[in-house]
Design a protein around this nucleic acid. Structure first.
Length: 352
DNA sequence: AATGCGGGGTC
DNA sequence: GACCCAGCATT
């Protein structure tokens, strides 16, 4: 029995019935792969169902507005995935006549498709004999061969990809790739791998050395830095209707093209009185009389690479502000139509 | 090669 | 609290 056969035999018996495994349509496989980038199956599955329902094919996705796509992506994070997928859907429809590229090299030319996703779609949908390398595969292979090069370095990725390709069953590359990932997800887990039930235990170098905990080798991460977000929740009445100012986030910062409130970011925590001085200085209230209605407690919003400490100051203006183009004035009901970061969504849920 | 980008589950 | 998840783009 060799490693490849043992793996495929295990997979046939133990694979989970995941919805995207019921199809080989490139569109649906692509959608599933993008949703699952840095995202667990449990977190992404509902999003997959909602997307397939709302946009059943690449044409319907291409016809949608970016805001619709982002709204559907809301809460999943890494929003560039949604923007890039929408961009690529339009490219596939307009430049490729709605037909997906059938090679990994062709797929990689599309925005949002890198080494992993290109190999995944090419092998699963088109049987291209190329191995994928994701977090699961890196863990399995690094343990199997006791690879002590960091898996997040270029040389490490190259070594691991070569090993994976050397094991690849070229006649069923899509199945093989999914089997490797499934083994990593279900058996060869990060903390305490279930080696006693692993079909590859007989050939595992890390297990032989009793050092599964030493692999994969990774370069240490940096600690998350703090950002202080002082949000201004500015409302006013126009034509008998209460409106709230929202801001579309542009530029290279987090949450690009999602909506939050006007915000004064500071280097350190700031008292409300000092913040109001800053607001005056920056003309945040448009020179109108205002009343502070509420100051929220501090919200802690933990991201992988950032720790956001947010405060929300609710202010009512007496008058109608002359707003710039980056701001929109919306009714409370319409806020729900906008794509919102999780932090803003949490705050709004607490307002009642 | 290093950094930014989200959010949530798990131990 | 630390880790990490079917990674990618940019610099």
């Amino acid at each position: 029995m060799n490693i490849t056969e043992s793996l495929l035999g295990w997979y046939a018996q133990n694979k989970r019935p995941l919805p995207w495994r019921e199809t080989r349509e490139p569109y649906k496989v692509w959608l599933s792969e993008v949703i699952l980038q840095q995202t667990r199956v449990a977190q992404g599955t509902d999003y997959y169902h909602r997307f397939v329902l709302a946009f059943p094919d690449v044409q319907s996705l291409a016809s949608a507005s970016e805001q619709e796509v982002l709204k559907l992506w809301q809460g999943l994070g890494y929003y560039s995935r949604a923007r890039n997928m929408h961009h690529s859907a339009k490219e596939i429809v307009e430049k490729h006549n709605g037909i997906f590229p059938s090679s990994a090299a062709g797929l990689k030319k599309l925005k949002g498709i890198g080494d992993y996703t290109a190999a995944a779609i090419a092998s699963i949908c088109f049987e291209e004999p190329t191995a994928v390398l994701d977090g699961n595969v890196a863990r399995v292979i690094s343990r199997l061969y006791a690879v002590d090069t960091a898996v997040d370095s270029n040389s490490g990725k190259s070594i691991l990809t070569d090993f994976a390709n050397s094991l690849l069953d070229v006649d069923q590359s899509g199945t093989f790739n999914q089997a490797m990932m499934e083994l990593g997800a279900l058996v060869c887990s990060p903390r305490t791998p279930a080696c006693y039930t692993c079909p590859l235990a007989f050939g595992c170098e890390a297990l032989k050395q009793n050092k599964t905990g030493d692999f994969p080798v990774k370069t240490p991460k940096k600690v998350a830095t703090v950002r202080y977000m002082n949000y201004l929740v500015i409302s006013f009445v126009q034509n008998g209707e209460e409106l709230v100012l929202m801001r579309k986030r542009t530029g290279k910062d987090i949450w690009k093209n999602l909506y939050d409130f006007p915000c004064i970011e500071t280097e350190n925590s700031i008292e409300t009185n000092d913040l109001l001085v800053l607001c005056e200085k920056q003309d945040a209230f448009f020179g109108l009389p205002y009343v502070v209605k509420q100051v929220s407690p501090e919200y802690i919003h933990q991201l992988s690479h950032r720790r956001l400490l947010a405060k929300f100051i609710k202010v009512e203006l007496d008058g109608i502000p002359a707003i710039s183009s980056s701001l929109v004035a919306v009714t409370k009901e319409k806020i729900a139509d906008l794509p919102l970061p999780r932090l803003i969504d949490r705050y709004l849920a607490n307002l009642i």
